[in-house]
Simulated assay, not measured.
Amino acid sequence: MMTRLALALLLVSAPNQSFAFYLTGIRLQELCSQKNMSLELDSMLNVYMMGIVDSTAPIVEAMRPFCIPEGTSAKKVTEAVCKHLTDHPEGRSHRAGSLAATALLQTWPCR
Rank of each mutant, 00 (worst) to 15 (best):
Q34T: 15
I52L: 10
N46L: 03
M44I: 08
K35S: 09
I52E: 15
I26S: 05
Q17C: 09
N16K: 06
L45D: 04
A20I: 00
M50V: 02
L31G: 13
S18D: 09
L9K: 03
S13Y: 00
L28K: 05
T24L: 02
Q17A: 15
R27L: 14
L41K: 01
L9V: 04
L11Y: 05
V47N: 11
D54N: 15
S13Q: 09
N46E: 09
V47M: 09
N16R: 12
N16F: 04
M37Q: 08
K35D: 03
D42H: 10
S18M: 02
L31F: 02
S38F: 00
S18W: 00
L31E: 12
A14I: 03
D54C: 04
S38E: 04
A14T: 04
I26H: 06
M50A: 12
T24C: 02
V53P: 09
L9W: 01
F19D: 09
N16Y: 06
S43A: 10
N46V: 03
L28Y: 04
S43E: 05
I52K: 11
L23W: 03
E30Y: 02
N16I: 06
Q29P: 00
L9F: 10
Y22Q: 08
N16H: 06
P15K: 10
S13I: 05
A8V: 14
A20Y: 00
P15S: 07
M49T: 05
V53F: 03
G25A: 05
M44D: 09
L45W: 01
I52P: 12
L39S: 12
E30H: 04
M50W: 08
P15T: 14
A20Q: 11
S18T: 13
V53T: 09
L31I: 03
M44C: 08
A8T: 11
L31K: 02
Y48K: 04
V47R: 13
M37T: 12
A8K: 13
L10Q: 08
K35T: 04
S13C: 10
L39T: 08
G51L: 06
L11I: 10
F21R: 15
L31M: 12
L31Q: 05
S33E: 09
R27G: 13
I26Q: 10
Y22K: 03
F19M: 14
L11V: 14
Q17D: 00
I26K: 14
L23Y: 02
L10E: 05
E40N: 13
N16E: 13
L45N: 06
Q34P: 12
